[in-house]
């Protein structure tokens, strides 16, 4: 908890975010690029899918960030609802747009992957449909939080929406286990992976790279929002004098 309280101080956050932003961003870009290069040229093709399997190295990180992004957004929303600290609301709002982008990229890369393997761009199976719903929920959150900010709301309604949206996370996660779907089951679990080690290793680079890149984006967007809030507060004070 002391860490949270230290971070919750906007001045201290700025001091930390300033060097952390380029660090996360560029380390993420480097790791992701290396992972993509390795995944495109340094791994064997799949016994069944051939070269198409290389889409895995970007599709999985996109899916991870789409879902992980919403988990982070929900946690920040809860932190805001409980401690009422404005920085938590800023964090939640900063996560929404990158999260939506990666959820969308997950759908797009999945669709491109589905055509040569399954023989279809899109099917309404449990996994695909629930991921599409998550994408729409992101869009709804962005619209809602924007409307709330414009009307001078305190951000409690978007935060509640952020918590309610977590309903989709177990549905997406377990859809391939509990329903029969066109999408294959989970490849990477806590107990191990069903991807051959010679094909798996670049995925760790793209996963960590995309995640750091995502963190860099969130920090940039938080800093932008905090600076804008500062300007607005100052303008109001100047207008009042």
């Amino acid at each position: 908890m002391p860490i949270f309280h230290a971070l919750a101080n906007p001045a201290r956050f700025q001091k930390l975010a300033r060097p952390l932003t380029p660090l996360c961003f560029w380390a993420g870009v480097a790791l992701a690029l290396f992972g993509c290069w390795a995944g495109l040229t340094r791994t064997p093709a799949d016994y069944l899918q051939g070269e198409t399997v290389r889409i895995l190295y970007i599709h999985v990180p996109c899916a991870w960030l789409g879902m992980g992004g919403w988990s982070a957004l929900a946690l920040a929303s809860i932190a805001y609802l409980v401690w009422r600290h404005p920085l938590a609301a800023v964090a939640a709002r900063a996560i929404a747009a990158p999260g939506a982008l990666f959820a969308g990229l997950c759908l797009v890369t999945g669709s491109i992957w589905g055509r040569p393997t399954w023989g279809t761009w899109w099917q309404w199976d449990g996994r695909l449909t629930s991921m599409l719903l998550l994408f729409f929920v992101y869009i709804a959150y962005i619209a809602l939080s924007r409307a709330d900010a414009e009307r001078g709301g305190d951000g409690r309604i978007p935060a509640l929406f952020g918590v309610a949206g977590t309903i989709l996370l177990p549905v997406i996660r377990y859809s391939v286990i509990w329903w029969n779907t066109l999408h294959q089951g989970q490849s990477i679990g806590l107990t191990g992976s069903t991807i051959a080690p010679s094909m798996l290793w670049p995925l760790w680079f793209t996963l960590s790279g995309f995640s750091l890149f995502f963190a860099g984006l969130v920090l940039m967007r938080m800093r932008a929002m905090l600076a804008r809030q500062k300007v607005e507060a100052r303008m109001r004070r100047m207008a009042a004098v």
Partner: peptide, 16 residues
């Protein structure tokens, strides 16, 4: 497969 693979990588790169 390569048009599909490159399209997926290109779109992800562009979006990012």
């Amino acid at each position: 497969p390569w048009p599909f693979v490159s399209a997926a990588y290109a779109l992800t790169g562009l979006g990012a």
